[in-house]
């Protein structure tokens, strides 16, 4: 197991390195940040000085090498716009994004798992068909539009929930989050629901497909033949088998939930990293964009590793190379 984790970690570093190269070169292609920093009317000598100072006159690869050296010491450069280091700027925003993603994952699981199992167990029922058509709808409606509709309905018309911001933060076990206060929960609910819709339909379809497949297996019939209760057959024998693909997908999708929360964060003015990156793209704030993308990639790679490890716990048949068992 340890050998396996080491191997995977090494692989991850290679992926990160390649990714950082692509990101760095890619960002250099989009616009010239010079004029974001100083007025175009400045003296040519002044412009020359700034270009020299930031090293924009050097070849891209040389700039990259310089960047790598800095990153190795934890320095992703300073935001052109705010003048503070990029890394802490992003990390400071991350908890809000993670919290939004976790809560929306929770919402989509709580809704999609039972509905998916139900639709899988009774595919002929009208209610199942309604659930499945509904999930197609959830799949195909654009996130920003749903977000605006949620605001219109619950915030403007009914005035039940607030529509912007993160609300009060509470502290629990040293973690600061809006999940720990009522006010915070009321703030997170709408954006989380909005973000959840994105994943809800895929989890639901996966659960339904898994249920339909597993329910036909001999071991389910055998479990019934042993006289187990319906709930034990479903909650233990069936669910444990469906959870394998569901956990895999959820784990992988959690990364995309974080990465694509940008739309939701923008609609609900949620002060997370997604909103920051949108603002940075507008301002051509290279260091922030690069740092954000690299953090996101690192996050994906890390999640993949976690999912693989979790998978081996859930499914005893998965033998990991180098495992001692």
């Amino acid at each position: 197991m340890t050998v396996y984790i080491l191997q995977r970690t090494l692989q991850s570093f290679v992926v990160l390195f390649v990714m950082s190269l692509i990101v760095f070169c890619g960002v250099n292609l989009i616009g010239d940040p010079i004029y974001m920093m100083i007025s175009p009317e400045s003296e040519p000598a002044e412009i020359e000085r700034v270009i020299k100072e930031f090293g924009f006159d050097r070849p891209v690869l040389e700039q990259y090498w310089f960047f790598l050296k800095n990153v190795a010491s934890g320095d992703f450069g300073r935001s052109f716009v705010q003048g503070i280091p990029a890394l802490p700027l992003i990390l400071e925003r991350f908890p809000a994004t993670i919290e939004l993603a976790v809560f929306s994952l929770f919402i989509s699981l709580v809704i999609a798992l039972p509905l998916g199992v139900y639709a899988g167990l009774y595919p002929e029922r009208k209610s199942s068909k309604i659930i499945m058509s509904g999930s197609i709808l959830g799949f195909s409606m654009p996130t920003f539009w749903v977000g605006i509709m949620l605001i219109m309905l619950f915030a403007v018309k009914l005035d039940w929930l607030p529509s912007t911001g993160r609300g009060e933060l509470g502290t629990f076990l040293g973690i600061e989050s809006s999940l720990f206060t009522l006010n915070g929960l009321s703030h997170i609910f709408l954006p989380a629901l909005n973000l959840a819709l994105f994943k809800l339909s895929s989890v639901l379809r996966l659960t339904r497909a898994g249920t339909r497949e597993v329910i036909l297996q001999d071991y389910i019939k055998f479990a019934r033949a042993k006289g187990l209760s319906h709930s034990r057959v479903i909650n233990v024998h069936l669910l444990k088998n469906i959870l394998i693909p569901v956990v895999t997908v959820i784990g992988l999708e959690f990364g995309s939930l974080v990465a694509f929360s940008t739309v939701t964060e923008t609609v609900f003015a949620w002060p997370g990293a997604g909103k920051l990156i949108i603002d940075s793209v507008y301002n051509l704030d290279r260091p922030v964009i690069v740092a954000y993308l690299i953090i996101i990639v690192a996050f994906f790679v890390f999640l993949n590793l976690i999912v693989d490890i979790l998978y081996s716990f859930l499914d005893p048949r998965v033998r990991i190379k180098g495992s001692s068992e």
């Binding site: 071991y219 088998n241 499914d315 005893p316």
Partner: peptide, 10 residues
Amino acid sequence: DPMMTLNPVL
């Protein structure tokens, strides 16, 4: 069929 009778994850 003994191969299919027991639940693989329990």
